[in-house]
Design a protein around this nucleic acid. Structure first.
Lengths: 131, 131
DNA sequence: CCCAAAGTTGACGTTAACGTAAACGGTAGG
DNA sequence: CCTACCGTTTACGTTAACGTCAACTTTGGG
């Protein structure tokens, strides 16, 4: 098995973040690179986690919330109670994401509105210029 | 004309935020209540701005970004250059919101995935129980 | 008149998510 | 051996967005 790994600066470059951020994510338990001596070796699994973290950030999640989602992914499911609790959390998060979708669509339609008014105003200016 | 206004605690109650937050938004120039003596009188326009601010927060905008959107709304458009610049900003914001939509949809479909795996695991547990 | 409720202005405290700088180790090239 | 570069830890600094007093003023009721 080929142990594909990434150095800290590999990931920093690829995702355009600082090495400081990566170390910070490790500190917070969001990434778990192995060590080769002192040096961190990030696994493909870490890479996936990082993608989730960054996507989370883009939609306004805190690191804690992203950690919650990551935990959903990785929890070793053997116990029915845990699984049901997890399904509950998934549902909550789904609700909240749907609410965000609504908010974003509302914003978009307001932008449509402002844009239309802008274009109308521009048209008026041009007509006055030709008058 | 009926000058419909709101006290600071009216708005605080209605939107479930603190009065401190409202004063803070004023400090930052996002709200512009008039004064009756010392007391703030918020207008319906302030109420709308507040809705925009809170929606912005829900989708992860900073107050500065929300202020940008509010400014789009209120800028007195008389100059063609300004209008065109504004149309540009609207487009940028639209791009970014669309990107967020993508991110959210990706998250949702990952949640679908995790959920399916959960339910599968649960089914296995139940089958083992009956076996 | 007195009190409680609602309001005001400072001013300092807090949390998240890093930035930044200092001081050091390992290693590959010239 | 020296330098460059990549990496490490430790620790203090920073910004946004409020929270949390403290110390008033104002106002409507009893």
């Amino acid at each position: 098995m080929i142990q594909n790994t990434y150095s800290i600066s590999d990931l920093a470059r690829e995702f355009d973040i600082t090495t400081r951020a990566l170390r910070f994510y490790e500190e917070k338990g969001l990434l778990r690179p192995e060590r080769e001596g002192q040096k961190r070796l990030f696994s493909p699994a870490d890479r996936v986690r990082l993608e989730l973290i960054l996507r989370g950030k883009r939609i306004g999640l805190t690191l804690e919330e992203s950690r919650g989602i990551i935990d959903m992914y990785e929890r070793g499911q053997d116990n029915a109670e845990q699984l049901n609790s997890l399904l509950g959390k998934i549902d909550e998060r789904r609700q909240s994401l749907r609410a965000q979708l609504q908010d974003i669509q509302a914003m978009l339609s307001e932008l449509d509105d402002v844009q239309a008014r802008c274009q109308h105003a521009l048209k008026n200016i041009e007509e006055e210029a030709t008058a």
